[in-house]
Computed example of a mutant assay.
Amino acid sequence: MNEWTNSDWKEATEHEELVAFYLYTPLCGTCAVASKILNVVTELKPSLSIGKANLNYVEELATEYQIESVPCLLIKRKGEQAEKVYAFQSVQNILQKLS
């Protein structure tokens, strides 16, 4: 999972059918758990386009997508926003949302 900028996210949504963008903050304990879940997901689905960003550096996304808290996983299908995930729960849960 690579660090993305806002422009990386926008470019990926224009060229990929399914894209996910993981937003976190470094001092968030729940974000650390969510990061581990997403690391497993990226190992299981290496072809899936998933980026991540510290929300402190992409603040415009917080406003644009009305991010309520972190961790947050933005999922877009065919350029259209499909879902904002705040409760990661498990690897299986995230895999289901990304299938």
Rank of each mutant, 00 (worst) to 15 (best):
L23Q: 07
S7D: 14
H15T: 13
A32H: 15
L27R: 13
A62I: 06
E64F: 10
A34P: 02
K10Y: 05
Y22R: 09
F88T: 10
S35T: 15
W4L: 02
K45F: 08
Y65G: 06
S69R: 08
T5M: 06
L44E: 00
I50S: 07
K76T: 10
K52A: 00
K10Q: 13
A12G: 01
V70F: 02
I50T: 07
G29H: 07
N6A: 11
L74C: 05
A53G: 13
A34E: 03
A82V: 12
T63M: 14
E83G: 00
K76Q: 15
P46A: 11
L98M: 10
R77P: 00
W9F: 10
L55M: 11
P26L: 07
Y86R: 04
T13L: 08
K52T: 03
T63Y: 14
A82S: 13
V91S: 03
P26T: 11
T30K: 03
A12Y: 07
Y22D: 04
I94E: 05
L48R: 05
G79N: 02
S47M: 14
C28W: 07
A34C: 08
E14L: 13
Y65K: 10
E3M: 00
N6L: 09
G51D: 12
I37P: 02
L44I: 01
E17M: 09
A34I: 01
K45G: 03
E43D: 15
C31Y: 02
K10G: 00
A34H: 01
A20T: 07
S35A: 15
N2T: 01
L44H: 04
V41H: 01
S47W: 12
I50K: 03
V19K: 04
